[in-house]
Write a protein that binds this DNA or RNA. Structure first.
Length: 181
DNA sequence: CCCTGATTCGC
DNA sequence: GCGAATCAGG
C-alpha cells in the first residue's frame, strides 16, 4: 500500500496526538509499525526522542541475506468496512441503545455529509469508524459523537468497535475487528 | 519478555 | 521513497 495524502495526514495527526507507531500502523492498516516510523522520519516529524541517550548507534552491516526462514507477518488491512443495504435510519442523536445489535451494514450511506469527519476533525469522543477506502479520496470517518462521551455511535455498535488501545494488543492475532460476537 | 522509537541500508 | 532488520532502551 502506498502513502496517499489521506494516509499521510492521518499519520501526522495520530503521531501528533501521541499515538504509538504500532497503534498508528493498526489504524492505517496495511503497514507495519516500522513503516510508520520510517515514514515519520522521512516526513521529518520524529522529534520524539525521549531517552536519546546515545544517538550514535553503531549500525551493524546488514546483508540482505538474513532470513532463511523468516515469516513475514504481513498484516493485511483489516478495517471494517461494511456496506450493503440497509435499513438503518436512526436520528442523528438518538437515545443510547442499550443493547446494540450487531448491525452489519450500511454505513456508507448512513452518515450525513454534514456529520462526516476527516482525520483532522476527529476527537477523542468521535466515532472513528472508517468509511471507504483510505487509499482513495473517498474516505472519511463516521465522526458521530455519542452522548456518553465514548467513541461509539448509533451506526457502529460498540461490540464491533474496539478502542485503539484494546485493538493493538490483538494486532498480531488479527482477528477481525468486527468479529466479536 | 513486552513494548517503544531510532537507525541503517537493500530494494 | 519504502520498510525489514536491527538496535537501544523503558
Amino acid at each position: 500500500m502506498s502513502w496517499t495524502n489521506e494516509r499521510v495526514e492521518l499519520l501526522k495527526k495520530l503521531w501528533g496526538d501521541g499515538l504509538s507507531a504500532s497503534q498508528i500502523a493498526g489504524e492505517l492498516g496495511g503497514v507495519t509499525r516500522n513503516a510508520v516510523i520510517g515514514k515519520v522520519h522521512r516526513l521529518g516529524l520524529s522529534g520524539r526522542a525521549k531517552s536519546s541517550s546515545s544517538s550514535a548507534k553503531p549500525r551493524r552491516p546488514r546483508t540482505t541475506a538474513s532470513p532463511a526462514s523468516q515469516s513475514a507477518p504481513k498484516r493485511p488491512q483489516t478495517q471494517p468496512q461494511t456496506q450493503g443495504s440497509a435499513a438503518l435510519k436512526m436520528e442523528p442523536t438518538p437515545a443510547p441503545v442499550a443493547e446494540v445489535q450487531p448491525v452489519a451494514e450500511p454505513i456508507a450511506d448512513v452518515v450525513p455529509m454534514s456529520k462526516r469527519a476527516t482525520i483532522l476533525t476527529l476527537t477523542e469522543r468521535t466515532c472513528k469508524w472508517p468509511i471507504g477506502d483510505p487509499a482513495t479520496d473517498d474516505f472519511y470517518f463516521c465522526g458521530q459523537v455519542s452522548e456518553a462521551g465514548v467513541p461509539y455511535c448509533p451506526y457502529h455498535c460498540k461490540i464491533a468497535y474496539q478502542p485503539v488501545a484494546d485493538r493493538r494488543r490483538s494486532a498480531n492475532n488479527k482477528t477481525s475487528v468486527a468479529q466479536a460476537s
